[in-house]
Simulated assay, not measured.
Amino acid sequence: MWIFGYGSLIWRPNLDFVESRDGYVRGWSRRFYQGSTDHRGVPGAPGRVATLVHAPDAHVWGRAYRVSPTQRDQILAQLDHREKGGYERTWVEVVVPGGEDIAEALVYIGTPENPEWLGEASPEEIARQILVSHGPSGPNPEYLLELAESLRQMPGADDPHIFAIERALLELQRATSG
């Protein structure tokens, strides 16, 4: 079984896997529309984390992890707990440039129907919320900055939405530190 990560699973998988491959899924865009009251924020002051939204002409880079059949149930239980804040399981095909595509990979997606959904906002508004959010898994800026840096390490993994929020966050950090 393969699991596709497009957010913190890229830079902090915290799961046992047999192998990993960088690749992308078609028909989706990564967006910081999902709220987090259990990892990067708290109830009443949610952080913002990534989810996928349908976008027919787009694609999203991430990392696929192959897990051992003997650890499948344990890893799914671990991921179900980790992604409990409004995420649903679905299956995607992962394109692996220069390698064999992965026909089916499990991915967790926060949908607009879930109670943690925050929805659209400008990169500046998202950055302002991220700047002040902190939860049990750490500061929300760490999530965004680690994700952006990880994407830079993947050839071809341009993500204008993520990089616009990162620029806005870095500007806010400079303005508040000086």
Results as ranks from 00 to 15, higher is better:
126 I>A: 13
67 V>P: 11
94 V>Y: 02
141 P>W: 01
91 W>K: 07
59 H>A: 05
92 V>S: 10
76 L>K: 02
122 S>Q: 09
63 R>E: 05
46 P>V: 06
89 R>M: 02
135 G>F: 04
139 P>R: 14
84 K>D: 06
87 Y>K: 07
47 G>W: 02
93 E>N: 13
85 G>A: 09
57 D>Y: 12
96 V>M: 06
103 A>G: 15
135 G>I: 02
87 Y>T: 01
67 V>W: 14
66 R>A: 15
56 P>E: 15
87 Y>D: 03
87 Y>N: 02
50 A>T: 14
46 P>L: 08
106 L>T: 02
108 Y>P: 04
69 P>S: 13
100 E>L: 14
101 D>G: 06
114 N>P: 08
98 G>W: 10
53 V>L: 15
79 L>T: 03
89 R>A: 01
131 L>N: 02
106 L>G: 01
96 V>T: 04
101 D>C: 09
131 L>K: 02
55 A>W: 10
87 Y>M: 06
64 A>Q: 03
125 E>S: 13
130 I>Y: 11
88 E>I: 00
62 G>L: 10
99 G>D: 07
119 G>I: 04
105 A>S: 09
108 Y>K: 05
63 R>C: 01
100 E>W: 14
43 P>Y: 12
65 Y>H: 10
132 V>F: 05
74 Q>A: 13
102 I>E: 08
89 R>F: 02
86 G>S: 04
105 A>G: 09
49 V>Y: 03
138 G>I: 06
129 Q>F: 10
51 T>A: 10
67 V>E: 14
45 A>E: 10
87 Y>V: 01
135 G>P: 03
119 G>W: 03
133 S>I: 01
90 T>V: 00
70 T>L: 14
74 Q>R: 13
66 R>M: 15
126 I>M: 08
60 V>A: 11
123 P>R: 09
101 D>Y: 11
77 A>G: 10
114 N>I: 15
76 L>Y: 04
47 G>S: 07
142 E>S: 09
120 E>I: 01
126 I>G: 00
82 R>I: 07
42 V>K: 05
42 V>P: 00
62 G>W: 07
81 H>N: 12
51 T>P: 08
109 I>G: 02
134 H>W: 04
59 H>R: 13
131 L>I: 00
49 V>S: 03
141 P>V: 01
85 G>T: 00
140 N>R: 09
81 H>D: 14
135 G>K: 02
65 Y>W: 11
141 P>T: 05
93 E>K: 15
64 A>M: 04
111 T>W: 11
137 S>E: 00
86 G>Y: 07
66 R>K: 15
74 Q>I: 08
78 Q>V: 03
100 E>K: 15
119 G>Y: 03
